[in-house]
Design a protein around this nucleic acid. Sequence first.
DNA 1: CGGCAAGTTTGATGGCTGTCAAACTATGAT
DNA 2: ATCATAGTTTGACAGCCATCAAACTTGCCG
Lengths: 127, 127
Amino acid sequence: MNDARIPPHPELADISLQQVLEALVDPVRRSILTQLAAADDDIKCGGFDLAVSTSTATHHFKVLREAGLIRQYYVGTSRLNTLRRDEVDRVFPGLIESIVAAEGQRGAASLATTRSGRSAKRTPSVA
Amino acid sequence: MNDARIPPHPELADISLQQVLEALVDPVRRSILTQLAAADDDIKCGGFDLAVSTSTATHHFKVLREAGLIRQYYVGTSRLNTLRRDEVDRVFPGLIESIVAAEGQRGAASLATTRSGRSAKRTPSVA
DNA sequence: CGGCAAGTTTGATGGCTGTCAAACTATGAT
DNA sequence: ATCATAGTTTGACAGCCATCAAACTTGCCG
């Protein structure tokens, strides 16, 4: 099976602001978003620069997908990720753009300054 | 003392995207934001339509204030609230606008659909 | 002065969620 | 087949945070 492994994606009508904001409040997920926004092509899960374990990364991708922010599909053993930019923009105009812009402006310096919240044990940082 | 009771507000330079998003991810706080955005005048704490106790409301106002989203000042025993719209917009252009717009569009129907997260015990709703 | 009104503080509680390691599945290559 | 690669699942754990009630502070008014 190749296609059967493709996880479910929400319809445009089922995307909620609450879920989108919950997804975007996490610095790691916002990092995924900005990396996708800055890239020309789709990025495989392992191709991101993230400071968390792969299992945690899987969790974050799932949250982003279920919020309707990214689309995932398989190519071999790799899972590729696309930003659903235009789609989300049709539901919440300007939202993604303003957040990506905000992250790029002041957020760049505070990527390590996370301050995230929740358990931050270990903080391997710099990977 | 009258002025001494005025709580501290962050400078523009100290406003972080992380803190702003953490503030805006809560439905109650987003409700405060939209009510302020829709109002012509400043609103006192007790003047909001919120489904939480006053002590919880105080907490939410504090979070919004510390994130730099609102400004508070005393008039008698009442604490008035102003949206720091233009200021925040100078730091994160379009962010508040897109969220307020998103809330007004689809969010209106999902105000009770919270799904928020965190403890939701009781859910008095409709107040 | 005495009481009321408006909020704040404090303390406790419960639930959600970010994190990891370890075990597992599936695809591709040797 | 066998191994390596890519990622997912499961289970456990810790920390944060939204929530409330009760006690307190401050200012207004009669």
